[in-house]
Each structure stands twice: as structure tokens, then as C-alpha cells.
Computed example of a mutant assay.
Amino acid sequence: MQVQGKVIAVTGGGSGMGRHLVLHLLSKGARVAAVDINEAGLQETASLAANPERLSTHVLNITERASVEALPAEVVARHGAVDGLINNAGIIQPFVRINDLDYAAIERVINVNFYGTLYMTKAFLPHLLARPEAHIVNISSMGGFLPVPGQSLYGASKAAVKLLTEGLYAELLGTSVRVTEVFPGAVATNITANSGVEIRQMESQGRSSLKPLPPEEAARRIIAGVEQNRFRVLVGSDARLMDFLYRLAPAWATRFIERQMRSLLG
């Protein structure tokens, strides 16, 4: 789906990759409904927009189903229609093992990452099916196909997003709605701060590390995937490498990631 002239809702639009998705869509001629729980973040995104007349901002907690269900009508009232949805909002867990992860943190991550994506999809899908062409993009994670110790629950939530998205793709074949799943690797965003998570400095001696991808480049690649109607988008050389290695030798790749994460877990 070409995004020019389309109306697209983006969650997590107040910062990081979501903000750059909003700005990139606007630069390509789309109209955008930016959604975020952080009103100040949305205002900052709006202040950076070159075409603010094509942008609406919506302060919303995506884990509150009733509020999410009211959102499509707000977007349609503002823009006249809605043609696309990018489920980008997400949080990580504290860097601890499952044994040390409390239930409040577990429920928060599952509610934001999985139920938030599900609620948004369910709310917008009837409107998208009524359009001549439409698109749903769900942001999973490299951790959604590769186990990452200390982020096992986060990975489980993103694996659920992966399977939900693939199921949607199959269910929507033959309709006007296309579906894309996205697996970012390391992207330079403030997700740790937004998640309320503290992180130790990872020991780097003797290790090579890939530089995180700038969020504006990640956004560009995601939108390119939408315009190419791609089923699957791997964002970053680390995501592509680990996707290959995990398919080739899953146990070896799991042990490799555990060694990289060991210093964070203590």
C-alpha cells in the first residue's frame, strides 16, 4: 500500500521509533493519528512535524479496552477515514530472570505488548476492511523469535504478537487488508526509560557489538516494507544475522545470546 494520501494510526507516536514513523509518514504525504500515553511526548512529536495540519494526536492507554474501542471513531471524525494501523507501542521488562520477575511486571508487559496490540487491531479492523486497500503493521522484536535471558517474558509477549500477526495475515488473504510483521534488532530509542527499567552497563571487553540503528532509519525501512506489501521485515543487521543463525543452529544461537546477556543479569 502506498502511504501517500492514506490515513494511518501509529501507537507509541510520542517518542523513539514511533515518533519517526509518524514524521516519515507525514513526509511521504500521509495523514497520521499519533497515539501515546504520554501527552508531552505527543506534543513534542507535533512540534517536529513539517505538516502539522495532517497530524492528530490522541492521548490513550492502549491497555484500556473501552478507550481503544472509542478511538477509531475519533480518527475517522478527524481525518474522514482510516487506512492503516501501525502497532508500535511496547515496553520491556526489568532485566531479571523469570524466577525473580514479579507478577505486576509480568502483567504490565503482557498487557501493553500483547493485549494493547490485540485491542487496537480488533478496534480498527472493521474500518480497515471497509477500505479499498488497507494495511496492518505489528512490531514484534528480534526477541520474539530468539530467546533473550533477562527478557524472557518480553520475548514471550512479542512472540505472541508474531503469531497473532501471522494468523491475521492468513485470515485476511483475499481481503483488502495487507499485514506486515516487523522484527527490529537494536534501535537507538529510549524504550528502557519509557518502560521504567534500569539497565546495567554491559561488559564489552572482548566482544564485538553492532551499533544500534537510528530510529529514523528503522522507520524508513518499516514504511518501505509497507509500500512493498512485505509479509516480514527484519530491521537491522543484528536482526537479520540472528534470524539466520537461529534458523541454522537454535541451541548454539541461544547459548551465544546468553553469553552476551550474562553481565546484565549478574
Rank of each mutant, 00 (worst) to 15 (best):
H135M: 10
T165F: 06
Y154G: 14
T11N: 05
I92H: 07
V197A: 01
A188L: 03
T165S: 15
R65Y: 06
L264A: 03
I136N: 09
L128P: 14
D36R: 00
N88W: 06
M261Q: 14
D102Y: 12
M1A: 14
A9L: 11
V22D: 02
R221F: 02
E258M: 10
P215I: 06
R221A: 02
S195D: 01
T189D: 12
G143W: 03
M242F: 15
P214C: 02
A218R: 02
V22T: 12
M17T: 03
G13R: 01
S237T: 07
Q93H: 11
M1E: 12
D243P: 00
A66Y: 07
V75G: 06
V32Q: 08
L210Q: 06
A70Y: 09
K6P: 03
A105H: 15
Q93M: 12
L245C: 03
L71Q: 08
L60F: 06
T121E: 13
V3L: 06
L26R: 02
R207H: 10
A49G: 04
R178M: 08
N194W: 05
L129I: 13
L60D: 04
E198R: 08
F256V: 04
L125A: 13
T57H: 08
P250W: 01
V96G: 12
E216R: 04
L248R: 01
V177W: 03
M202Q: 09
E227K: 01
P250L: 00
G90V: 12
E258T: 07
R259M: 03
L248A: 08
R131E: 11
S47F: 07
F114I: 10
M202A: 09
V197R: 00
G206L: 06
P149R: 05
V235P: 01
S27Y: 02
M17L: 15
I62F: 06
A104P: 08
V235D: 05
N88V: 07
Y169L: 12
S47W: 07
L128G: 14
R200D: 01
R207E: 03
M1L: 10
R54T: 04
G266Q: 13
E198L: 08
V82W: 13
R247A: 02
H135S: 15
R108D: 11
R255V: 00
P215S: 01
E69S: 09
I139C: 02
T189L: 05
E74V: 05
P184M: 00
A130V: 11
P147W: 08
H135P: 00
I110Q: 13
Q43I: 10
R97E: 14
G12K: 10
G14P: 00
K158L: 03
R247Y: 00
G185Q: 01
A70D: 15
P147V: 12
A49R: 09
D83T: 11
A46Y: 04
I191V: 15
N111C: 09
E171C: 08
D36K: 02
